[in-house]
């Protein structure tokens, strides 16, 4: 891959939850020590169960949530050290697409005003005609008819609203888009359209994308690499193909085996790894490896030490004490 755009180092986001009346609080570790890099034109998929910190991670990278520890380095520049004004200037390169397409659009504004907002903010000298031309161009590119420019969000379907959200994110030609579950609120047929739109935009503009989703089938379709998150910790990070063909982490293996295969005969034959127990509360995560309470291969060591992130080989890292002893499962699903 080409030039490195984004480097995330040991990023943690802890929320202080107040307890009782006496001002005491305990930390909720939403994201804990996550590191990765992202190159221009690359898509990194971030998967995990709901509540595992995927969205928090995406927002912390954009500094919409202040990280507790760690660094986000954007084109060699640590974002944490920037003053508010400099950060605002950088935001033109960093955009986000939200999960709920309608909620992400101001109901009192027209589609045109919504799409133009980042443009008006970052290029205040632009005239009305120029703004309108840019808005219409990006609307056409994202598959919206430019005549709809004066319509309001409640007059649109979910898929169209998501196109508006994408148009707003794209109008400044950003370098990175964080897609926070961009398709999980949409119908399956619309999902495909939106995913294809995102991929087409990425190909034509050389965008870097962080694609956050709980749906491995979608993530696999768009991502070059996949990061598996569990209770805010990185479990496994690998090239898309490697991760799906030879997942090494027990959690990744379980996750992949849970994806349905669109073939009833094979679906019936496949061996599904069923995890027992519930997702532990992030307020009270298990000691050592956070996955150990549900891991079929857990040993005493897993409760004692936090597993380090180790390279399986170049570009494939894993956080598991026993990965070398455990067999790499053959691709049961998704093959």
């Amino acid at each position: 891959m080409s030039e490195q755009l984004l480097r995330v180092e040991d990023l943690s986001v802890h929320f202080a939850l107040p307890t009782g009346f006496l001002g005491g609080h305990r930390p909720l570790k939403a994201v804990d020590g996550v590191s990765f890099t992202l190159a221009a034109g690359e898509t990194l998929g971030i998967v995990g169960e709901s509540g595992c910190g995927k969205s928090t991670l995406g927002r912390a990278i954009l500094r919409l949530i202040e990280p507790t520890a760690g660094r986000v380095v954007w084109q060699g520049q640590p974002l944490g050290a920037l003053a508010a004004d400099a950060l605002r200037g950088l935001r033109r390169d960093l955009q986000i697409v939200f999960q709920d397409p309608l909620a992400a659009l101001d109901p009192r504004m027209t589609i045109g005003e919504i799409i133009a907002e980042p443009l008006v903010t970052h290029e205040p000298a632009l005239g009305r005609a120029a703004i309108r031309a840019r808005v219409e161009a990006i609307m056409a590119e994202t598959g919206l008819l430019p005549q709809l420019i004066n319509r309001y969000p409640h007059e649109f379907s979910g898929g169209q609203c998501q196109r508006v959200g994408i148009a707003r994110a794209m109008i400044l030609q950003p370098k990175l888009i964080v897609c926070d579950e961009p398709v999980s609120a949409l119908d399956v047929s619309i999902q495909a359209q939106i995913v294809n739109l995102l991929m087409r935009l990425q190909a034509s503009h050389g965008l870097a994308m962080l694609f956050i989703s709980h749906d491995l089938a979608v993530v696999r379709h768009v991502s070059h690499r996949i990061l598996v998150l569990y209770l805010g910790r990185l479990m496994e990070l690998a090239e898309c193909h490697d991760l799906l063909a030879a997942p090494r982490h027990p959690y990744t293996q379980a996750l992949i085996s849970a994806v349905p295969i669109p073939d009833p005969a094979r679906e019936r034959r496949k061996r599904r790894i069923v995890l027992t127990g519930e997702l532990p509360s992030p307020l009270d995560p298990p000691s050592g490896c956070v996955f150990r309470t549900r891991c079929p291969h857990a040993r005493p060591i897993c409760a004692e030490q936090i597993p380090r992130i180790e390279p399986v080989r170049f570009g494939h890292s894993i956080a598991c004490h026993r990965w070398q002893e455990l067999p790499a499962t053959p691709p049961a699903a998704l093959a």
């Binding site: 950060l87 939200f98 999960q99 980042p118």
Partner: peptide, 14 residues
């Protein structure tokens, strides 16, 4: 708390 406010933050609106 609604998403469109966060979207405005992300766009760099003051």
């Amino acid at each position: 708390r609604r998403d469109f406010i966060e979207a405005a933050h992300a766009a760099g609106v003051r």
